[in-house]
Simulated assay, not measured.
Amino acid sequence: MMLEDVKQEVYELLNNDNSGHGMEHINRVLELSLKFAKTENANKDIVTLIALLHDVDDYKLFGMNNAENLTNAKKIMSNCNIDKNIQEQVCLALNNIGYSKRLKGCCPTLLKEKLYLMQICAMH
């Protein structure tokens, strides 16, 4: 899996962000996510992708169309040749996590999503 390529594309997209969604935030989220993944024996690669991509379609940064369609996340994973099955798992997680989605009744169902939600709550 080309995780370094994904990280580079996320960097290019978010590096100039001043709203708190830049790479410093992404790296903190990634570090905490990997700690949870290790503790819970979750798939490290999928957790890494979720952590890296969690803000690349944030509606506050990229608009509702991107947020609803995961435009940037899908493009990045496709560009980096991420397996289609893994892309589907990551998109499912991305569609079900986040504070605003929680307010709308979306709730994580998979362990990796629950891990991610826990660390997001700890970060925000």
Rank of each mutant, 00 (worst) to 15 (best):
M1W: 01
M2Y: 14
M2V: 06
L3F: 07
D5N: 11
V6I: 05
V6D: 07
V6N: 04
K7W: 01
K7M: 07
E9R: 11
V10A: 10
Y11D: 07
E12V: 14
L13V: 08
L13Y: 13
L13A: 08
N15F: 13
N16Y: 05
N18L: 12
H21E: 14
H21G: 00
H21R: 13
H21T: 04
G22I: 06
E24C: 12
E24T: 12
I26R: 08
N27Q: 12
N27P: 10
R28C: 13
R28I: 09
L30D: 02
L30F: 04
E31V: 01
L34R: 10
L34H: 02
L34M: 06
A37L: 02
A37H: 00
A37D: 05
K38T: 07
K38E: 10
K38N: 05
E40F: 12
A42D: 08
N43A: 06
N43K: 07
K44I: 04
D45I: 03
D45C: 05
D45Y: 04
D45R: 10
L49G: 05
L49W: 00
L49P: 04
I50D: 01
A51W: 09
A51N: 09
L53I: 00
L53D: 04
H54Q: 14
H54G: 07
D55I: 04
V56K: 06
D58R: 00
L61D: 02
F62K: 00
F62T: 00
G63K: 04
G63P: 03
M64E: 06
M64Q: 07
N65F: 14
N65V: 11
N66Q: 01
N66P: 03
A67I: 05
A67M: 00
A67S: 09
N69Y: 13
N69P: 04
L70M: 10
L70A: 07
T71Y: 10
N72S: 10
N72A: 08
N72F: 12
A73S: 15
K74W: 10
K74M: 06
K75G: 08
K75N: 11
M77Y: 11
C80I: 02
N81E: 15
N81K: 01
N81R: 02
I82R: 01
I82V: 15
I82W: 01
I82E: 06
K84T: 07
Q87K: 03
Q87C: 05
Q87W: 07
Q87G: 05
Q89H: 10
C91T: 08
C91I: 15
A93Q: 02
A93I: 08
L94P: 09
N96P: 02
N96K: 04
I97K: 01
I97P: 02
I97Q: 02
Y99L: 08
S100H: 02
S100K: 12
K101P: 03
K101E: 00
K101L: 03
R102G: 03
L103E: 04
K104T: 04
K104Y: 02
G105A: 04
C106H: 15
C106T: 10
C106G: 03
P108N: 04
L111D: 15
E113H: 12
E113M: 14
K114D: 01
K114T: 08
Y116K: 09
Y116H: 15
L117P: 05
M118S: 12
Q119L: 14
Q119F: 15
I120R: 07
C121T: 13
C121R: 15
A122D: 11
A122Y: 15
M123E: 14
